[in-house]
């Protein structure tokens, strides 16, 4: 095995690349400019998809934390998955803010505005950055996993509260374009947007699988290194004892 790739991830990665290329071609060239938004509508083919995958990633973290804490399903794999998904989620959430900002500048005239969805996303990002910082604190594996799982849940429980409080506070973001009775966009635009969702979902899956394997390898190597060091020290002690006796 050369790295963390397997046939599954190669197929997954290939599909992700193809759909992503399709999204880019459809989004940047095939689709017409919008009547209202002009060229800027092209960001709609990636921005909501990235944002959704960020939210899905944090949902996976919360679920995996819960499964780890529940004694009957306790397994270090859930802990690994929670951490890995949060990390990928942080990447997606950051990109959500960046692409949103890039769209907001020409549309609203400002890079940042205290709009409900923007603020919620920013707080979500801060919550999970804290979670990742908590995970990075070294410690005994089991207690670190429990600590992280509870920390992840505390953060996840906060998400709906943040959502409602910020929503009451401000609302300026345009409503969801897709999830309406009659979607606002049609034809090739809708196809581009849906393809974007597929592409970023595949990218998320690919990243999580690879990152999971990397994390798994890293912890195993760490354990092994610890055991080797322990065995060496024991051998030294035995030698010393022999010399003494």
């Amino acid at each position: 095995m050369k790295g963390t790739a397997t046939t599954l991830t190669r197929v997954l990665g290939f599909c992700a690349l193809v759909t992503l290329a399709g999204t880019v071609v459809l989004g940047l060239w095939t689709t017409p400019p919008d009547v209202v938004q002009g060229e800027l509508v092209r960001l709609i083919y990636i921005h909501p998809a990235i944002a959704t995958m960020g939210e899905v990633a944090f949902g996976v973290t919360a679920l995996a934390s819960l499964l780890y804490l529940w004694r009957r399903t306790r397994d270090r794999r859930w802990d690994l998955l929670a951490g890995v998904s949060a990390e990928v989620g942080v990447v997606f959430a950051s990109l959500t803010l960046v692409t949103g900002s890039i769209w907001g500048r020409p549309t609203w005239g400002v890079w940042w505005t205290w709009d409900a969805r923007l603020t919620t996303t920013a707080l979500l990002l801060a919550l999970f950055l804290g979670y990742l910082a908590l995970r990075r604190v070294p410690g005994e594996a089991g207690s670190r996993a429990t600590r992280s799982a509870i920390g992840g849940l505390v953060a996840a429980v906060d998400v709906p509260i943040v959502h409602y409080s910020v929503n009451w506070w401000r609302t300026l973001h345009q409503g969801s374009t897709l999830l309406r009775r009659k979607p606002l966009i049609h034809g090739v635009q809708l196809e581009a947007m849906l393809l974007g969702f597929v592409a970023f979902a595949l990218i998320y899956a690919w990243l999580v699988v690879h990152r999971y394997r990397v994390e798994d390898l890293a912890t195993r190597l760490e354990d092994r290194g610890f055991e080797t060091a322990l065995a060496e020290r024991r051998a030294e002690a035995d030698e010393l004892l022999e010399v003494v006796s």
Binding site: L40, L43, I46, L95, T99, I102, W103, R105
Partner: peptide
Amino acid sequence: YVAAGYLVS
């Protein structure tokens, strides 16, 4: 802006 958005992502 569109190019920058795609490029950064």
